[in-house]
Design a protein around this nucleic acid. Structure first.
Lengths: 194, 194
DNA sequence: CCAAAACTGGCACTCAGTGGCACTTTAAGG
DNA sequence: CCTTAAAGTGCCACTGAGTGCCAGTTTTGG
């Protein structure tokens, strides 16, 4: 890796690490960007060249995760129906979340304690929704009705996923996330006609 | 109405009106709170006694709408199944939105042009989701499974509703919102098994 | 080794939002 | 009415996020 890249990666990591420490020790709002910069040995001005804002520090894997999700969506393109694709992806993420359970839970506690972070999380969900809508759209073909169906389905999908995650977080990550996920996707598939 | 109440209502309206004008003329971010205060003839400090933040000005009906929704949810409590309740409520709101179409569209254009406002909108959706989850929960009875089902359903519901609204906005409010809503709720009820 | 490009730091600035306190207005009882 | 407590307002000073600008440094590629 070229030197420049290396340094940038290092600075980025330093900022993330510094932020993580402070956020978890003193809380998000109690931490100023100046403090993070001081810890990371970087100027304030430079900070904003690495992160759009303070919130972004709380979601360092945002782009990674989205890209992985997109890749998985593409990969699941030839499954029998869209939901089956999601089921597979769900297994993957469920496993990953279970493995990193402690860190992820801590992260989520942080997010849930700060409205601004909750808002950012919704923004992320929106990205995922759009990604799914695009994928589903390819399946459903042309026409306004297909478009609507794809978007409805994506909306419902992110809705059940988020609800599932919240439940899992609330139960301290104890339940089997893969199972919860399948239950959620059953709902998506079968609907909620009681 | 006691004088004090009257005055407070007047100030609130003045602030909303001032903000609306500026927001639509110059945009949300280009408008400072000071300018709004000047227009409304009120001090900055007072502004923050009426609104939590600048964003709140863009959703003056937030609490009204939520309360109406809660009331309607309560009212629809004895419909055959939860989705039928939603169908009725959907008709009501669809009608209202169609009537105030122009204003609502303008408002939405504003919201969509500012990330911070989009974020607030998600926050509002979250309130609605919680409201629905609580209602559904009453239907589904006790137990963790019922709880999960209620939450999944609420998540899916808000998901399809939001997707529908976005579609409607995107089409400049031309489509029949009531029909779109029913289509969305069909999806919620029947699922998306293709 | 050199020039262009990329990156950094520091400064000054705007604006959102908060705490504190003195001052004015309203409500309510005698 | 008149008084007094409560509610509401204005002003001031302050913190902290985020931005524009420009001068100085580091890396890259030839």
């Amino acid at each position: 890796m070229p030197l420049r890249e290396t340094k940038k990666a290092a600075v980025r990591q330093a900022l993330i690490a510094a932020a993580n420490g402070r956020f978890h020790r003193h809380g998000f709002e109690q931490t100023t960007i100046d403090e993070i910069c001081a810890d990371a040995g970087v100027s304030r001005r430079t900070f904003f060249r690495y992160f759009e804002n303070k919130e972004a520090l709380a979601f360092p894997h945002r782009t990674d995760r989205l890209e992985r999700f997109l890749a998985l969506l593409d990969g699941a393109d030839q499954s029998a129906n869209p939901v089956d694709g999601l089921r597979a992806i769900c297994q993957t993420f469920a496993h990953e979340y279970s493995v990193n359970r402690v860190a992820i839970l801590a992260q989520q506690r942080l997010v849930d304690s700060v409205p601004a972070l909750v808002a950012r999380e919704h923004e992320i969900d929106r990205d995922w929704e759009t990604a799914m809508a695009t994928t589903f759209r390819r399946r459903f073909g042309r026409g306004a009705a297909a478009e609507r169906r794809a978007r409805l389905m994506a909306g419902a999908a992110i809705g059940v996923i988020r609800a599932t995650m919240r439940y899992w977080y609330e139960k301290d990550g104890k339940p089997d996330l893969a199972r919860l996920g399948q239950e959620a996707l059953d709902g998506l598939e079968q609907g909620f006609l009681s």
